[in-house]
């Protein structure tokens, strides 16, 4: 069930990525194995609306996620609605898990640094 929930969340992220788009972004056949799924993170230790944290997240995003991936003005997140912060955190931490080429950042950034990334992405959207 945990796997299923994760799949649903990834599906939601991809399919609802840009409301104007109608393509169905779904996962390929191969599902991630149960054991690589990490536990849910703790809640952020700071206010996700904190400007300094958003700025820190933006700088981190620009250096690791923008060039030749999501773009500097990421269409995936600008004016985006309905995202779950915990899900976004998990995706950054664990990467694409065989569905996309996105690397896992959990070994690179601290929990706090990942939450700053979430804060930045949240500042671009409506969630």
């Amino acid at each position: 069930m945990k796997t299923h929930r994760h799949l649903t969340l990834v599906l939601a992220l991809l399919a609802a990525s840009v409301p104007a788009l109608a393509f169905n972004a779904v996962l390929p056949d191969s599902a991630p194995s149960e054991e690589i799924l990490a536990d849910s993170p703790n809640a952020p230790t700071f206010d996700l609306g904190d400007r300094a944290r958003i700025a820190a997240g933006k700088a981190r995003y620009q250096s690791g996620c923008a060039d030749f991936c999501h773009g500097h003005q990421p269409a995936l997140f600008v004016d985006r609605e309905g995202l779950d912060p915990e899900y976004v955190y998990n995706t950054i931490r664990d990467g694409g898990r065989g569905a996309t080429p996105m690397p896992p950042w959990g070994e690179v950034f601290s929990s706090e640094e990942i939450w700053e990334l979430v804060a930045y992405l949240r500042s671009l959207g409506q969630w």
């Binding site: 991809l14 399919a15 990525s17 840009v18 788009l21 393509f23 169905n24 972004a25 779904v26 996962l27 390929p28 056949d29 923008a66 991936c69 999501h70 773009g71 500097h72 003005q73 990421p74 269409a75 995936l76 569905a99 996309t100």
Partner: peptide, 22 residues
């Protein structure tokens, strides 16, 4: 020009991207 990846194709075999408007 520039563009950013926004998802996967419905067959799961390709990246989908959005070209920059500005």
């Amino acid at each position: 020009g520039t563009h950013g990846v926004i998802g996967l194709s419905s067959r799961g075999n390709a990246l989908i991207t959005q070209a920059s408007v500005d």
